[in-house]
Amino acid sequence: MPDHERIGDGPVLSEAQEQQLLAYLDDRLSPDERSGVDAWLARDADLRRLLDEHRRTWELLGELPVPDEASPGAGFRENTVQRAHREERLRQRGARRRAMGVLAAAALVMALVLVLRDRPEPWARLTPEERHIVQNLELLENFDLLQQFETELDLAADVEALQAFEGELTETLR
């Protein structure tokens, strides 16, 4: 009895059987496993034919000539090495520039910190008059508005006085 079904152009094998045959063809089986496959082959003509065809195919693949392009080309090595070294120089130059940029930025930040640290507080540099102005800055900024408000308050007082006078006058006339 064959260890597989027969369909179409050859035996249909399970994945495990395929992998076992692959390892058999590539001589990657242990002696015991190899003997097992040999026994299987001895009783199955389809399998023998399949493996023969695989061997022939493998040999044919080996006959494919080495491509012409594989031969060492004139100047290939020199060009490749020169390109690699040129790239490396550019890379190093770029890395140096980046490092210089970072250093310059760090130096600038440090300088700013030092300058600002030694400067006195702005408040301490003001005269008493200037401090007075700063303290009343909001008042000065809204001077016009406040003045208008004050005028309106004065008018209201006048209206109240007039109303009081009108009341007194009405009483007197009665």
Binding site: V66, P67, D68, E69, A70, S71, P72, G73, F76, R77, T80, V81
Partner: peptide, 16 residues
């Protein structure tokens, strides 16, 4: 340079 020299044919064949 020695690496390129040693592997040039193999790399080119594989690529081809």
């Amino acid at each position: 340079e020695r690496l390129v020299e040693a592997y040039e044919p193999r790399v080119k064949a594989a690529v081809a």
